[in-house]
Design a protein around this nucleic acid. Structure first.
Lengths: 233, 233
DNA sequence: ATTGATATTATGTATGCACATAATAAATTG
DNA sequence: CAATTTATTATGTGCATACATAATATCAAT
């Protein structure tokens, strides 16, 4: 097969990844340099470079200056999860969204929380407990701590109208954060709120967002049984 | 602050995302076009384009030809999960990896499985049940179906030496697949294998990989309690 | 006014060239 | 021969230019 006149970096990326996936180029093997490939494909080196760059951050190849490019030994595939706000998540399932603010108080958090958020021990936080509903059925129970220093206006916000989740997304920009996913047996409180039996396995997402070094919010989301997080690779 | 002589697309990306995060440019707001920004930053339009492109697939801005670029209304942050092989996952935790092949048989799968893999009903599959250990403690229990049409050599492979997981990664290239994450209460079999009580909440990853339209393998990974999947955004 | 053709505009891509940078290989020096 | 310096090489980036493409705006004709 002649690969000439496959200009456009997309086509070239396609052909390159085909060769890798079909093992034309074996894992660990060095592949031709950009200049040579440019000649083969009848295009500029820049174009090959663009295609290669995409392959590199897809994890299919590893590149090092002077050393060249080689097929990744164990191509670490990356799945990407979209972190959207709960209302959208519910509406995407074709259900009607609503939420109830169950608790709202300002107090000193447990040690575990303040250390996780790297706050001084005496700092007071806003604690919010919210139940998210899909078609009036419990969908997710949210237990959130907010650092009022990082987002003072939230103390005035009416969080029964707009959920804390949504308010923060719109009003409290964050630079980075981390997320954990795990499973737990529902405790009494969680079971009560989600209207399930105590001990039922529930899916948990724990997320902390920060602005630079300052923690903005730490939240634990407990999804009702049957929830599946899905994505493609 | 003069933003002149901030060449290099990284610096420009940094400055642009700073303006977005700091709400200099509000969500939904249209931002200056590439040509104007190129003038402001004293660089070529190509360079601004590069920076913008990165912001776009980070989900911070939305771009449309002629319409221009605007700050994303609800910046959908994407978390990326690295799908690595279990041995590496265990070793990264500083534990010693081992695995036991518990069952190996060729049979017709349940309807649910064959429909999920989009196979004809009468197709036979290789079923493999593997227990993965970290420092000789149960770490994860794997229940896997492999389509021998897609990877015939696996029938000859010695899967007590190298795990099916690892064998497939190295020998059966895939083009795409999908993953689900959820929580279940351990059934009798899972409890037994993971040495836990029946009903304990366990974290499940279900993954199917395909080569084009052909399903290669469908696997259900049941992680021992305490497992947390972690990433950053 | 609605429809349809045409111009305009911002982003998207390709190219040739130049130079920067990191890593390696080769050459030189003690 | 080991250690250090100096070339060499492949990727990384920036720029000017050109043209492609998609979406919108403008204008003409019915």
């Amino acid at each position: 097969m002649s690969t000439l006149e496959n200009n456009s970096w997309q086509n070239i990326q396609g052909e390159l990844s085909r060769r890798i996936i079909m093992r034309v180029w074996q894992p660990g093997e060095q592949i031709p340099n950009e200049a040579d490939l440019a000649v083969e494909f009848g295009c500029a080196r820049t174009t090959v470079n663009r295609a290669m760059r995409e392959l590199a951050n897809a994890g299919l190849v590893e590149r090092r200056r002077k050393a060249g490019t080689r097929v990744a030994l164990n191509p670490i595939r990356k799945a990407t999860l979209e972190i959207s706000i709960t209302r959208q998540e519910v509406e995407r399932r074709g259900a009607q969204y609503s939420h109830i603010l169950l608790e709202r108080q300002i107090k000193r958090p447990p040690r575990l929380i303040s250390s996780q958020m790297k706050l001084v021990d005496k700092a007071k936080l806003l604690q919010l407990k919210t139940l998210h509903l899909a078609d009036n059925q419990p969908f997710m129970y949210e237990d959130r701590w907010v650092n009022p220093d990082a987002a003072p206006e939230i103390l005035q916000a009416d969080l029964s109208e707009i959920s804390a989740n949504e308010w923060l997304v719109q009003n409290a920009p964050f630079s980075d954060g981390d997320i954990s996913f795990f499973a737990i047996n529902a405790n009494k409180k969680e079971a009560e709120n989600l209207a399930i039996d105590e001990g039922t396995a529930i899916f948990i997402i724990e997320r902390m967002t920060k602005m630079g070094e300052t923690a903005i919010t730490l939240v634990k989301l407990a999804y009702a049984p049957g929830f599946k997080m899905h994505t493609t690779i």
